[in-house]
Every structure is written in structure tokens, then in C-alpha cells.
């Protein structure tokens, strides 16, 4: 759904043909001329319909109108930042072929533009795609992923409708995962509900990743429940990765710095739920999955890990206890820095 000049020409020609097929009274001619003009505007106007990830028309009308108004106003005041967003290069071969790993990446470039870039990025996602002429599918997807990630990391409620719409749309696995994580970062009640609901759909893995970014007790409980019930090692890997992010000690400390100390207590509760779940399920799978569990436990870095291990000792074999003791010792050593 990307507006290009040839699309506009085709639309106009079609409408002109339609107007010829109807008796050409002055009134009808005027009606069709107006209709044609309106439809062409909806295709051609940069802030009207076609973003790189969704068609803005899928947004709720009120949200769409509100965003459009904000974008229009902000653009008039800050045209340069819109231009900066539209001229990122990380997904273009002229830049990414110089990367050490020459793959299209645009997230860092967008993220470093900061919160000023929110509305321009939403415009690009939903209303007016930057030019993607000549780009390959993976390059376009890189642009989508980069925009979605950078928007999500700003955790600005104005992005809620767009991110949820992207999450609901049918894109590549990478785009949908990025969208789920962005919804998770925003972590609204509605977003959490959507992610929970998606657990019963083909988007289950994406939803799990999204829950891993939603720093609430509820998402921790959800993930812990999933870990208790999952039957496959591959899904256990996905859940463990999400739990590591959700329970990250340093992330909660950052949130406390940003949002206030009450979040430390919340974080402590979340981290405990996660650590308990990872330890009590540690023996259910082997090999790579245990490695993922250990990594998640390390990220959660809970001070009382030894106690949790003791509580669940009856579920753990000797080797497992030893592996967890190694982590506990490492965490204690680091805590003494």
C-alpha cells in the first residue's frame, strides 16, 4: 500500500473512465470530479493513508484523525526532523554494504534521533511511506522493523493505535515480532490484552516476545504459567528469552530511575516470579534450553537465587543444582563490586 505516482495516475484514469460511463450532466460530472479529486488526494496526500507498515485507514477513525492533526501541526513546525526520518540510510545498499555485516539495519539510526522523531516515524509507518523504490523486500522490512522498534522504545502512548494495528497486520515474522515487542514496551492495558489474546493464535511466539517487554506483574505471571505448561523446548527457549528481558535487574533499576522508586518494588516482585518459574522448570528440558534458562536467570540476577534453588531442590538433580549454584556465586561476586 505504498503511494507512487503511477498508482495515482491509474486511480485518476479509472475515475475519469467511470465518470464517462454515467450520463454526463453537469451535476454528475461535478460529483465525479470531486470524488476523483478526493480519492486521488487520499492516495497522494502524504499524511492521508499509506504508510510503510499499514494503511492508516485501518486505524480507528478518532485515533487516525488525532494523529493526522498532530503530525500535520508538528511537521509545519519541525520539517527537518521529518526529513531526517525519511532520509535514513541503514536499509539502503549504499550504506549497509559498508557495515561489518552487510545487512540492512535502520533501527539504531532511527533510535538515536530521539523522541523528536516520534511523529515523523508514525507518519512513515502509517500515513506516508518514505520512498522504497528499488528496494528489496528485506530492505523494506528492515525499514519497517527499525521504525517499529524505534517508536516502541519511546514508550509514547500516541503510538498505541499504530503499533497495535501493525501487530494485527500480516507481515514477515521479523516485522510482527518487532510490532509485538513495541506493543509490549508500551504495555497499556489494551496492549496487554491483545498480546494475551494472541497467545491462542498463529502469532503466539510474537506475543510471547511482546510480553517479555511489558514490565508488569501480570505479564510475568502469564509467562510463568506458559513456562510451566509448555511442552516443547523451542517454545521454552522463546519464553525464557522473554522472561530474561522482563525480569532484567538492570532494566528495572533504569525504570526506577526514570519513573520513581516504586518501580523497584514492582520489579522485585516480577523478578521473583520469573526466577521461581525458571528454577522450578529448569530440569524439564536439557541442553540448549537450559542454557537459555541460565542466561535468563543471570539477567534477572535475583539476590535470593540460592534460596529459590533450595526451595525447589527436590525438583532438581545434582548437576542442575550445581549449574545454578555457579550462577548464584557469580551474581554474588559481581554484587560486591
Amino acid at each position: 500500500m505504498i503511494g507512487r505516482p503511477d498508482d495515482q495516475d491509474k486511480t485518476m484514469n479509472t475515475l475519469k473512465e467511470m465518470s464517462k460511463m454515467i450520463a454526463p450532466t453537469n451535476k454528475t460530472r461535478g460529483f465525479f470530479s470531486a470524488l476523483a479529486a478526493a480519492l486521488v488526494m487520499s492516495v497522494a496526500s502524504p499524511a492521508a493513508a499509506d504508510g510503510v507498515a499499514i494503511d492508516a485507514r485501518v486505524l480507528p477513525a478518532q485515533a487516525r484523525a488525532s494523529l493526522l492533526a498532530q503530525i500535520t501541526k508538528y511537521k509545519a513546525q519541525n520539517p527537518a526532523i521529518f526529513q531526517q526520518v525519511r532520509s535514513v540510510k541503514g536499509h539502503r545498499p549504499e550504506l549497509y554494504t559498508k557495515f561489518r555485516n552487510p545487512v540492512p539495519l535502520v533501527g539504531r539510526e532511527l533510535r538515536h534521533l530521539g523522541p523528536d522523531a516520534l511523529l515523523p516515524m508514525l507518519e512513515a509507518l502509517a500515513f506516508d511511506s518514505p520512498s522504497v523504490d528499488g528496494l528489496k523486500q528485506n530492505e523494506i522490512d528492515a525499514l519497517r522493523v527499525g521504525l517499529i522498534e524505534a517508536v516502541g522504545m519511546l514508550r509514547d502512548l500516541r503510538s498505541e493505535a499504530v503499533l497495535e494495528a501493525v501487530f494485527a497486520s500480516d507481515h514477515s515474522r521479523w516485522v510482527n515480532t518487532a510490532a509485538a515487542e513495541a506493543v509490549g514496551r508500551l504495555c497499556t492495558t489494551r496492549g496487554l490484552t491483545r498480546l494475551s489474546a494472541a497467545l491462542d493464535t498463529k502469532s503466539r511466539d510474537h506475543a510471547i516476545a511482546g510480553l517479555g517487554q511489558c514490565r508488569q506483574h501480570k505479564s510475568a505471571k502469564l509467562l510463568a504459567g506458559l513456562l510451566d505448561k509448555t511442552k516443547t523446548a523451542s517454545e521454552a527457549d522463546t519464553i525464557a528469552a522473554a522472561m530474561g528481558s522482563l525480569g532484567s535487574r538492570w532494566a528495572w533499576r533504569a525504570l526506577a530511575r526514570r519513573d520513581g522508586k516504586t518501580r523497584l518494588a514492582e520489579g522485585e516482585a516480577v523478578r521473583t516470579v520469573i526466577a521461581e518459574a525458571l528454577v522450578r522448570n529448569y530440569d524439564r528440558f536439557s541442553g540448549e534450553t537450559r542454557k537459555r534458562y541460565r542466561e535468563a536467570i543471570s539477567m534477572v540476577a535475583i539476590a535470593g537465587l540460592r534460596g529459590i534453588v533450595v526451595r525447589h531442590a527436590s525438583r532438581l538433580d545434582t548437576a542442575s543444582r550445581a549449574e545454578l549454584e555457579v550462577i548464584a556465586a557469580r551474581l554474588e561476586r559481581r554484587a560486591k563490586r
Partner: peptide, 12 residues
């Protein structure tokens, strides 16, 4: 929080 979470993940 993202940078810090990534730091933890990288460390793990």
C-alpha cells in the same frame, strides 16, 4: 530500560 536490558542480555 532498553539499553540496560540489552546490557544484561549481552552479559548473560
Amino acid at each position: 530500560p532498553d539499553l540496560m536490558s540489552w546490557a544484561a542480555e549481552g552479559q548473560a
